[in-house]
Design a binder for these strands. Sequence first.
DNA 1: ATAGGGTTAG
Length: 773
Amino acid sequence: MKLLETRETAFAFFKVAFRNDSESIIRSCCVAAHILAAESLRFLAQDIVTWVISRIGVRRSKDFVEIMWGGHHQYESDFSVLDTLMRGFLRVEMATEAMEILCRMREEGVRPSLSAISTLFNLLLRIGDYGRVWKLFRDMLGKGPRPSNYTFNVMVLGFCRKGYVSIGESLFHVMQKYMCVPDTYVYNILINAYCIRGQSSDGLYWMHLMVERGCKPNIVTFNTLIDALCKEGNTGQARKIFDGIQDACLSPNVVIYNTLINGYVKARDIGQAIMLYEEMKSRGIAPDSVTFNILFFGHYKYGREEDGDGLLRDLSVLGLLPDCSLYDITVAGLCWAGHLDEALEFFEDMLEKGIPPSVVAFNSIIAAYSREGLEENAYEVYKTMDKFGLTPSSSTCSSLLFGLCKKRRLQEAWELLCMMIKKGFPVNKVAFTMLLDGYFRMGDLVGAQNMWNEMDRRKMFPDAVAFSAYINGLSKAGLVEDAYNVFLEMLTIGFVPNNFTYNSLISGFCSHGKLHEALKLEKEMRQNGLPPDIFTANIIINGFCKQGRMKSAIDAFMDMYRTGLVPDITTYNTLIGGYCKALDMVNADEFVSKMYANGWYPDITTYNIQIHGFCNIQKMNRAVIMLDELITAGIVPNTVTYNTMMNGVCNDILDRAMIVAAKLLKMAFVPNVITTNTLLSHFCKQGMPEKTLLWSQKLREISFDFDETSYIIMNRAYNNIKGNTEFAKETSGKSLFLDFLMYITYDYFCRNRPHGKTSQSPFKLIECVSTGS
DNA sequence: ATAGGGTTAG
């Protein structure tokens, strides 16, 4: 009865707090907290204290502390209320204030609780305030309370998360001096720390150590190691560990199966993946949505046509997701298998029959459109979700994000990401890495750097993929030195760089003429037991070709056979391009024959390279022959073909130019910013800079998307006009011809303009959908 | 403390 009364009183105070001015809020809450704490309702007291702290500024928090402290004496409440106060500050990440309370408690002889101190450690480690971490640790050893097993675990985890495994390991040794026996949890933390930086051998060593010391590994331990081995491409060893699970008297669960199935999928061994999947079912372990995603991803990317239908039927029958129908799974399956058309047909059929679709079906279609680079279609589908009363889910947004990044619509992608965060959707490294890469592709270094900083600010520590994306971006932007420094930083943290990382750096050095550095890195790669792959070889060959060092390029090409690499279409195209650049069309031709001899057929890129070569040596007739040849071979010319030919045509004599241009317009006319740049610069080159500016103006009027090169050309035209007044020439046939080409191009852009900038940004749509429902 | 999506060559 008394409990009830005081509780009522506490809530009465709390209610007053909501209505009155801020001064009494603080006082009322203080009283409420003390009463609740005294009545052993500490969790309620905690909520109230946290509520106050999150609403008052840093300055006023001092007043609150004083009031709480005074109340502590007045109500003679349990000391735990001060603990509560400390936790309140920790919850809102005010480490300084929490630390002050701790000191004051010590001064007044109040014993702080171990769990509150552990929470403080957690926060200090997360914000990287190591100075205070060590001070606090020393205080504990000197003044108590003595650190417990849990305290050490929190510290080991904190340091490992930050990438300081060696400190985690030292703490592991220290804890044993303080009579703490390491448990499975702390071993798993260390094993995981080694594994996420690619050091699975150390992880294995630690597992053996734990067994020797009488600590039993659990299913998580096994999974961590299996995953790490798979990620290193060692599925054989992963399978052995998997088979050892029974010996440890454990039984595999769905997570472990998913991990190993994923390993096989990534190793492109779909057969093994499906076998394991069958084994899992026969053991009575139900596959879940993750299994479904892994298998369909694998099939979509590496699988064979004939496996798809069986898998699809199988998964449909299982009815994997409880909240989605067989129809939804069919749509999702068709999408994953790359049969978007069939999926859409099936979907429309469903709607006609009045079967209500779920978010799953929508998500699959949106994801499929985004993968195809048809983000406009993705939006269309997305918008119709609203009509069915469906709210976009976290994966709907991720798919849209993927499409936007591919389409270089970074501003909208960023807004969407912010909206996702605001809505409380889970946003992880993957999304941030996509945007980081997207900004780099746009050439927006500031945007990319912001992304990198933002990741840091959100305590999302970059993994190997994020590091590689960052290093690649910096390399591409020509900041090779910076990229190299990031690479060193990555090494310091303890990450083992992979092929992606090395190849990005090597590419950076190659494209800036630093072949020596590139080759040094390749050697280093080999020494670290990382065999250079086809990408590495192609990058280096390209580096030599760029410098015109064809002899060295061929040496590198021959080296491939020695290291067991098989040249691919890119290798041949690179070398053919190298000869073309060196104006050596004879050797280029010879290499095409070599390519045929090795069983490769030229693709559109091969033809474009050769056409470029012939245009360069002013042999337009040969270029035209190549164009005819590719058509005969059943290859479709693309914008690169068009632009290359057009550039050649503009340099050619007028009669032939007109004939070729007519032919081009009929077959491959899809202009882009390169087309306009080509034409604008030809006006300039042929003494008509005023036409460059005139057409630029017309293009600007239709909000044409110029690039950096466009502005360089316009600037040159402007300077030509300023420096040279004798530009006025009579209207020549060539001038009319260029005008004609430009008009056709301009007209194309007028007709294919994006519908008046009205395409709604996805984040606005999300707002509509979520407020509407 | 454990599984899916994100990064490389012409």
